[in-house]
Amino acid sequence: MAALVVAIFMGGTVGGVRTSDRVRPVPVIRLAPCTCPPRYDLWGDQRACPSPRELAVARSMDMPVAIRSACVTIGFLSAAGAVAQGYPTKAVRLVTDGSAGGGGDVLARIVVAELAKVLNQQVIVENRPGAGGTLAPPVVLRAPADGYTLLQITVAAAANVTLRPNLPYDLLNDFSAISQVASGPAVVVVHPSLPVRSIKELIALTRARPGEVNYSSAGTGSSTFLGAELFNHAARVNLVQVAYRGGAPALVGVVSGETAVMFSPLGSSLPLLNRGALRALAVTTSGRVPAIANVPTVAESGVPAYEFSNWYGWFARAGTPGDSINTIQSALVSVLGRPNVAQRLSDLGYLPVGSKPGEFAAYVKENVDRLRTVLQPQRRPGGAR
C-alpha cells in the first residue's frame, strides 16, 4: 500500500489522469503501525496504516479526493484479503460411504473439483464403503469438530436408524447438516417380457400372483430396496426382494430376466432403456424428469401417496463452528449453480439441490420418521431382517 501511495505522490496515473498535472508535490506520508484491534483492521492484518494525526495532516494539505479514495479502496481490498485467509486454511477431507468409482463417489469428485477452486484449498475424497453405509460416519465422529473432516451420505443413512438400531453414532444428534448436494431420481423398470406397461398393470399382476413377482435390490437398506418397499407400502402390494451384492449385479438381474422389476437409479438404467433392454413404467420423483419426460411419475400413475428419490448430503460433526458450515454451504451453492457442473450431474442422472443447513436437517429427520413407519415391522432384534 505504501508503495502505491508513494507512486501517486511522485506522479503517476489515477483513472487515466496524470496526478502530477493535478496536485503539487507533497512529502511522502510515513505510515505508523496500525493500532486497531486485528479483527477490525480494515487495512489488513499486520499492515501499516496512517495514524489519525497523519490523516489530519494529509487532509490539511488538500489531498485530492481521487488519492484519498484510492487509499480507502486499498484498505477495503486488504480487508477482503484478510477475510479470505480465514476458514479453510488447509485441505478439507470429505468422507463418503460410497465405493470408488460408484455413483456417489463420482458425484463427490465432480463437486469437490470445483469446490477446491472456490475455497482455494484442496478437498480430498476418502471412500469408506461397506456395512450398509455405516463405516463412514464414525470416521467423521472421531475427527475434531473443526470443519476439516466432512461426511457425504445418502438416504440409506436415514433407513439405518431403523434397520440398525445399535449404530455407534446418532445421525440426528452427532452431526450437523450442511446441505443436500443432489437427488438421484429412480425409475421403475421391468424386463420387456413382463406383461405390464404401466404401474396400474404392475399392481394388478402383483395382486393376482401374490409372492411371485420379485424385484432386484442392491441389498437391504439401499436406495433400490427403499424405493421398492415404499412402493409396497403405498400400493399395498408385496413385491418380493431379491438382494444382490451391489447395484450393478442387481441391474443385470432384471436385464437377464432373473428378476421382474427394479427401482433403479436413473443414471444406471438410462442407457439400457435407450437400447430397449428394459422398459420404463414410471419415475419415482414427485415430478417428471427431463431426461425421460415422456415417462409418468408413480404418483400420477395411480399411487398418489408415493414419492422417492435417493439424496446425497453433506454433514459436519456436531459442534463445528457455524461460520465454517455456512462457508461450505455457500461454496456448494456456488458450485452447483455452475452450468458445467449442472450439466455433468444431469448427464449422470442427478438433480443439483444446494439446500440450506436448517432445511436439510428438517428433510433428513422427515426421512428418518417416514422410513421408520415403513421399515419398523420388518426389523428383527439386532438389526437383522
Rank of each mutant, 00 (worst) to 15 (best):
P64M: 01
A299V: 12
Y244M: 08
T373D: 07
Q180N: 13
A177S: 15
S355H: 03
L348G: 03
G302H: 01
A80I: 10
Q343G: 01
D97F: 07
T19V: 12
L77P: 12
A156R: 04
T285E: 15
L31R: 04
V255K: 09
P138R: 01
A177Y: 10
P37I: 01
L55W: 01
S286T: 12
G319A: 02
V261S: 05
K117E: 15
L77D: 12
L42W: 09
S301M: 02
L202R: 05
T327Q: 07
V5D: 04
T73Y: 09
N326F: 03
P25L: 01
Y312S: 10
L251T: 13
V106I: 15
G337D: 05
A66L: 04
I124E: 15
D347Q: 11
I328H: 03
T259W: 07
K365S: 15
M262Y: 05
L351D: 13
Y87G: 09
G322W: 11
P168L: 07
P195T: 12
I67L: 04
R344C: 07
L239Y: 00
N340R: 02
M262T: 13
G313Y: 04
G104N: 09
S330T: 09
G354E: 05
S330Q: 04
P50Q: 11
A82E: 13
Q121A: 03
R164T: 10
V187L: 07
D323Q: 15
V283T: 09
P129H: 06
G253R: 04
C34F: 00
G102T: 10
Q46Y: 05
Q121R: 08
N166P: 02
L281C: 03
S217L: 12
R370N: 07
V252K: 07
V254T: 10
A108N: 08
A218E: 14
Y40Q: 14
A204V: 10
A204E: 15
V242K: 11
S309L: 11
N127R: 01
N232R: 02
A248D: 14
T285R: 03
P38Q: 08
Y148F: 09
V368N: 09
N232T: 04
D174H: 01
A243Q: 14
R18I: 12
A228N: 05
A113P: 11
A234D: 09
V368K: 08
R128Q: 07
V123H: 06
Q343C: 02
V112Y: 04
L167P: 00
R142C: 10
G211N: 12
G75N: 06
V161W: 03
V65R: 00
A159G: 00
N367Q: 15
V188P: 04
A156H: 03
S268N: 14
L270A: 08
M63N: 02
R142L: 14
S223E: 10
D170R: 08
A235W: 00
L345W: 00
A116E: 14
P144K: 06
G11K: 04
V181Q: 04
F308C: 06
R275V: 15
